[in-house]
Simulated assay, not measured.
Amino acid sequence: MGVRDTYRHGDLSRALVEAGVELARAGGPTAVALRAATRRAGVSPNAAYRHFADRGALLEAVCSAGQARVAEAIEAEQALIPDATDPVTAARLRFRAVGTGYLHFALAEPGLFQTAFTASPDLESATSGSRAGAVGRGPFELLTDALDRLVAVGVLPGGRRPGAEFLAWSAVHGLAMLLINGPLRALEAGQAEVLIRRVVDMVEQGL
C-alpha cells in the first residue's frame, strides 16, 4: 500500500500534527519542523505544504494540540474532587486543580508543555475549540471558569476578580519553567511536589 493509499480515508493533516506533537515531546518547539513531521508521518515533504503553508502553521497546530492536552490534564485533576464536597470547598479545590494539573503536565511532558505556549502571539486563540479538552474549554478558560466560581460562592470578592487569571497563570507558569528548564530542574519529585502545593497555596491566599 502506498503513502497515498495509507491516507486515502484518513486525515493527513491530523497525522502531521500528531507527528509534530511527538517531535515536540522529544525536543521542544525547536524540534517541530515540516520535513521531520513528514518523515514521521511517512509522506513526502510536498504533501505537508498542501495542509500547512510553513513551519509556523504546523507549530501553531501543534501548540493547539498541546494546550488541549494541558486542558485534559486539568480536567483529570478536577475529576478527582469528591462529589459530596460543599460548594465553597469544591470551588476552591477546582481552582487549585487548575494549577496542579497544569504543573503536573509540565513535569510529565516538558517538551510538549513548552511548545504548547510558544506559537500564540496573544490571547485571541485562547478560546479556540482546537485548544479545548473534553469539556470544550481550553486551559485559560478553565482557569477563568474556576475564578468565576470562586466569586460566585463568595470566596473571591468581585472587586478582586479583574485580572486575577493573569496573576495566577504567571505564578504557576513561572514555577513550571523553573522546574523543567531552570535551576529547579534537578529537584527530586517529592521536593517539586511540595513547591507545587505551596505555590498554589500562595496564589489562592493572595487572590
Rank of each mutant, 00 (worst) to 15 (best):
L58F: 06
A132T: 01
R92W: 00
A146G: 03
R131K: 11
A119L: 04
A73M: 05
R92P: 00
R96Q: 11
V88W: 01
F140E: 04
V155D: 14
A65M: 03
G129D: 13
P139T: 04
A164P: 00
R69A: 04
G159W: 06
A171D: 07
A71H: 02
L150E: 00
T100I: 15
G154P: 08
Y102L: 13
S130T: 12
P139G: 09
F95H: 13
S125M: 11
V135T: 14
A171P: 02
G101E: 06
A79G: 12
P82N: 06
T115G: 06
I74T: 01
D54P: 06
A73S: 14
F117I: 05
A61Q: 03
Q78M: 13
L150T: 04
G174R: 12
P157K: 13
L103H: 06
A106T: 04
P157I: 05
G154K: 12
V135I: 09
E124A: 15
F113P: 03
E75N: 06
V153Q: 03
A57G: 11
Y49N: 08
E165G: 04
F95M: 08
A132V: 02
R161K: 13
L167W: 07
R160S: 11
T118H: 15
V88A: 14
L123F: 12
P110Y: 09
Y49P: 06
F166R: 15
A53L: 14
E124L: 14
A84R: 14
D54Q: 08
L107A: 13
D148P: 00
S170W: 01
A132N: 02
S170N: 08
E72V: 15
S128Q: 05
R161Y: 10
A90K: 15
G154F: 11
A116I: 01
S64M: 02
A152Y: 10
A57L: 07
G138L: 01
F117G: 05
L59C: 02
A79F: 04
P157Y: 11
A134Q: 12
A108D: 14
A61S: 10
L112Y: 11
A90V: 00
R131Q: 13
R131E: 10
L142F: 02
L107M: 14
A164Q: 08
E75A: 04
L123H: 13
L147N: 01
R161L: 12
V135Y: 03
A68I: 00
